[in-house]
Design a protein around this nucleic acid. Sequence first.
DNA 1: CGATTTTGGTAACACCAGATACCGACATGA
DNA 2: TCATGTCGGTATCTGGTGTTACCAAAATCG
Lengths: 231, 231
Amino acid sequence: MELERYIEVLSKAELFKGFSKDEIALMIKCLEPKVKAYQKGNYLAIAGEKFHGLGIMLEGEAAVYKENMAGNRVMMVLLKPGDVFGEILAFSTESLWPVTVEAQQPCKALFISRHKIVGECGRACPWHRKLIENMLTMVSERAIALSRKVEYLSIKSIRGKISAYLLEQYKKTGKTTFMLPMNRNALADFLNVSRPSLSREMCNMRDEGIIDFHRASVRIKDLEALKNMAQ
Amino acid sequence: MELERYIEVLSKAELFKGFSKDEIALMIKCLEPKVKAYQKGNYLAIAGEKFHGLGIMLEGEAAVYKENMAGNRVMMVLLKPGDVFGEILAFSTESLWPVTVEAQQPCKALFISRHKIVGECGRACPWHRKLIENMLTMVSERAIALSRKVEYLSIKSIRGKISAYLLEQYKKTGKTTFMLPMNRNALADFLNVSRPSLSREMCNMRDEGIIDFHRASVRIKDLEALKNMAQ
DNA sequence: CGATTTTGGTAACACCAGATACCGACATGA
DNA sequence: TCATGTCGGTATCTGGTGTTACCAAAATCG
């Protein structure tokens, strides 16, 4: 298997946190993952279809979308190499994907069945417990993220959403100037608004002297004003 | 410790699923929980304060509130004996309560530190692994529920929300005529819209012959139309 | 390099939904 | 019985947001 090339990536995956590269190489043999490659626009997982295993991104980028019945889609998160997806499904009673995962670029991902993680490989490898603990941490983080998503979605005005989002970036980086991790289209998806409306409102805020920006680079000029609008 | 009295309650908690009462009694000794009693109106946890451990309700009732930046509070869920709270926090890197938990009646709750669950008690009790798996299932289920909430919130039109809600009630009861479990005010809150707007749109749908209603009683007249609107 | 695609800003317009106010139908209670 | 409060429907007005279309700058690619 050509998985040796990806040990470096896997060692950065949350699932394997606390394991050495040598350990990971050994574990991989036991976990029997399946590697698949996708072209841009292809689906790594489709909402409503059956869950086959926990996914780990190896190369490229993919986006997780939640779609409602009319086909409107909200981007949940952008996956990069080392990122894990499907971890929520793996241990819930639900067995159908609640989201669609779409390749944003040509990409590769690896899939591990849930049974292998819990340790039904018969050999009772001692590291399964640590693996489950890692899973627990990951799922908790994901739940926190979803909770935050709910918070965003319940903000009604676009300005409120933008403010809340920028404040989060500010807290994360600790700096008033930072790069947005997505382009306008993706950000609009994420905030569940239309792209022109997002653009319009960001420009309004710039004209009012609250923020300044150019492409993906943003600078918060009036932090207090921003805080007042995050609601 | 007077925890023996509560073994019955604990045996119904999801955390201890799959364990016998005898096992639970033994585990409790190792888990070294702290029991605290609260008067009505006291706080079991306060948003923004430090997390100290996973909570399990033993007696009485408490409510989980989410507060937004403006200070408005929304009740998320009502906790009853056996219910677990803080399970998401316990294993995430986040260490501050995102919600406030307030006693609705005099109540008692038990707190277990995260270290004890993982099994740093030194004795390496064999049931820790099962305990962690239970935690994993609980957190996964919670995440799935949050994911559904996101689905609901990302519907943009009032008509879409009403349709989705009515369809859910239809699926739940299996009948086209049913009683709404809340009044208009509560329903508007739940759907995250204003009360007059909800009223207006419901009447429009009635005028169009899609539904019929009087007070809390609703009848679906055109199921297909409703499905088309649940975008 | 030039052609093509992607990205993001802008404008015009329609319309949905929030805010507010008011009213009638009921329920509750002294 | 009347007074009071709650609940829900309705009308008006306004503002925020989606839609659509177009354009310029930047990135990508042959």
